[in-house]
């Protein structure tokens, strides 16, 4: 018997009383104003920077990363910096890249990022944000799935977006047939060393959210 049929047979061999699926709890609705306020507060609490109003992209990028020179954007932004609109990821990442990276010093104040596939800043577009945790959603439309993680600093533009109260509302709106989607609720973080919170664990060191 295959493992598959063996496991299924074992499971079917045990009668477990049926339990029906419950209805979801209903949650009181919030005004748009309250949602925005919550979103801003929760995003800041998670270590994100939220920006709105008159946008100066050169400044936004500089404040995320003063020395940024490898910048990727999935849309048009008006800046004096040179921005890539497409980003090529090598089929297999070569050994030399790795060697180069491993030569970088492990110091917090002097981090050198010579790697050609490593981005300094990525600017990506999102259309969905969640107030209860200050998160934003990215979907399939990201050119390479690795971009939001491999970039040193991540900037998310919220354009024509829905701001919903809870994760439950977000899942309601999302298309469940997406090949890939991700909810990001702040910069990468860890507290694995003595519960000390460190921002910038492995993925993006900072998250800037731009409300447009």
């Amino acid at each position: 018997m295959s493992s598959r049929s063996d496991i299924l047979a074992r499971l079917r061999g045990t009668a477990v009383p049926a339990v029906s699926l419950p209805a979801y709890p209903t949650i009181p609705e919030l005004t748009q104003e309250a949602l925005v306020e919550r979103f801003r507060a929760n995003a800041s609490a998670a270590g994100s920077t939220v920006i709105s109003g008159n946008l100066n992209w050169s400044e936004i990028i500089s404040s995320a990363s003063p020395s940024a020179h490898k910048i990727y954007s999935d849309g048009n932004i008006d800046t004096d910096k040179s921005v890539m609109r497409s980003f090529s990821l090598p089929e297999t990442l070569s050994k030399s890249h790795t060697a180069e990276l491993s030569r970088t010093r492990t110091s917090t104040d002097n981090i050198n990022q010579p790697h050609s596939v490593l981005l300094d800043v990525a600017v990506l577009t999102s259309h969905l944000a969640v107030a209860e945790n200050g998160s934003i959603w990215l979907t399939d439309s990201v050119e390479h799935r690795v971009i939001p993680f491999i970039t040193e600093h991540l900037i998310i533009r919220l354009i024509d977006y829905d701001l919903v109260a809870t994760m439950a509302d977000a899942y309601d709106r999302l298309d469940s047939s997406l090949a890939f989607c991700i909810c990001i609720a702040g910069p990468s973080k860890t507290a694995d060393i003595e519960q000390s919170l460190v921002i910038g664990a492995q993925a993006a060191r900072s998250l800037t959210i731009v409300l447009e």
Binding site: G134, T166, M167, Y171, S176, C183
Partner: peptide
């Protein structure tokens, strides 16, 4: 799919007191 709207609200808060984990990937 929508059950995730229940579980993701519980997981981070229960685990570390975060309103959600930083990355929830599908």
């Amino acid at each position: 799919w929508t059950d995730l709207g229940i579980f993701t609200r519980l997981l981070g808060r229960s685990a570390t007191g975060q309103s959600t984990t930083i990355y929830t990937s599908h």
